[in-house]
Simulated scan of single mutants.
Amino acid sequence: MFGGLFVLAGIGMLLINYVLVNQIVPDAVGFVEHFEGTAPQPKTTTGPVTDPLDGGVIIGEKTSLIQSFRSSTMQTLLIASGIALIAAGAVAGLLGWLMAGRALKPVHTITATARRLGAESLDRRINLEGPPDELKELADTFDGMLDRLATAFDSQRRFVANASHELRTPLAVQRTLIEVAMADPTASPELLRLGQHLLHTNERSERMIEGLLVLARSDQGLVSRLPVRLDEVVDAVLRSAAGMAAEEGVTVASRLDPRLVIGDQVLLERLATNLVHNAVRYNEPGGSVLVQVSDTPALVVTNTGPVVPADAVPGLFEPFRRLARTRGASRDGAGLGLSIVRSVVQAHHGRVYAEPNAGGGLRITVYLPVTGPVPARSHRPAIESPDAPATLEA
């Protein structure tokens, strides 16, 4: 931009110089008249008209020579000025680029710092050194905003930690009191029915609180990142879900390739647990579930079940959103399963997609950043074929 403005100013100056020089340099006829001291001969004069001061040079030829010299001078002035302007414009553009880059370097620093920021890396600061100009003020304002954000996130983490204890303890006490009352041999059938209902309500409240706490933790980002074998985590989740699959009459198959993820093992385990449990719980008797772990995508969970409308799929990732007709009273959840999945995936800088199957059920695909080679492991889970799935044994 600076180079372009310089070139425009140079073009204007070149035009002004050309006009001024063109006006200062006299025309050929006037120049000859001034030095001849006489007016040109009329055209009706017979014979050659000569100039007595220069030994017989024809006035017409002299005028032509002077006119040619004047035209050549103006053309040379225009060409030389144009070449000088192009060269100076190129130099001005280069110097303007270098100076603008140096002047805007703090802006690139601010941009790079903002791009690296996350809920788990709010300790980064710009700390711009330099004169107290507008960019210094912008950087200091940005650092002050980060200080306030870091304070707010630390306060939220402490709140989640305190809420985890304060909310779970009363529910645990209530569950214990209900179980003690139900264990009384003299308890009436009405009391036992009430106790079962209260236990179910208490269990649902515990699941909801646990889901909200996990959701809040994952939304805050990852405090620490460690190498985690996703295939081993999924294998452990599948083994723990074998009893649920047997009760629901659902066949579970798996294809688990070695896959390393840099992240939080607890959150990754919760991600896999929610996907597997949802695939088993919201299936149909005699249905199937296929769980795949590979390089890309990292995790795919496909299940049979009721037909899911395509327009209802995006809403499943919102908190407390669920398809009512797929849930029975005995399996009513908090509606946080896929919300937690999305939050955990985003905390690991990944993506998650869901799409309905043609015959019913869902296919959920999780993409996570690819890491280095996976270290060898002493054992590997059995890889079941989707054509001949085997029910997992507890």
Rank of each mutant, 00 (worst) to 15 (best):
K43H: 04
A84F: 11
I83G: 06
R380C: 04
E269I: 01
R225Y: 04
R342A: 07
T169H: 14
V293H: 06
M13C: 05
I79K: 07
A354P: 06
L226K: 15
S72W: 04
L256D: 05
L135K: 03
L230S: 02
N22Q: 06
V344R: 01
E210T: 13
R327F: 00
G243I: 02
R168W: 07
S72T: 09
G47M: 11
L338R: 07
A388F: 11
R217C: 00
P369G: 13
T302F: 07
E248K: 09
I209Y: 04
G333F: 00
A183T: 11
A172E: 15
A80S: 10
E166P: 02
P52D: 03
R229C: 03
V280R: 00
A139V: 07
F35T: 08
D27V: 07
S224T: 13
R115E: 14
T296D: 14
V345L: 08
H197K: 09
V366H: 04
L275G: 00
P369M: 12
I59N: 01
P106F: 07
H34R: 13
G82F: 15
T176V: 12
A183G: 14
L98I: 13
A172L: 15
H34I: 09
V214I: 07
K43T: 08
E61L: 05
V301D: 00
A382Y: 08
T76P: 00
P106T: 08
D54L: 13
V352M: 05
A114C: 11
G101T: 11
E248I: 02
G350T: 09
G287N: 02
G335C: 05
A88W: 06
E179K: 06
A329K: 00
D311E: 15
S121I: 08
A347R: 03
T46G: 11
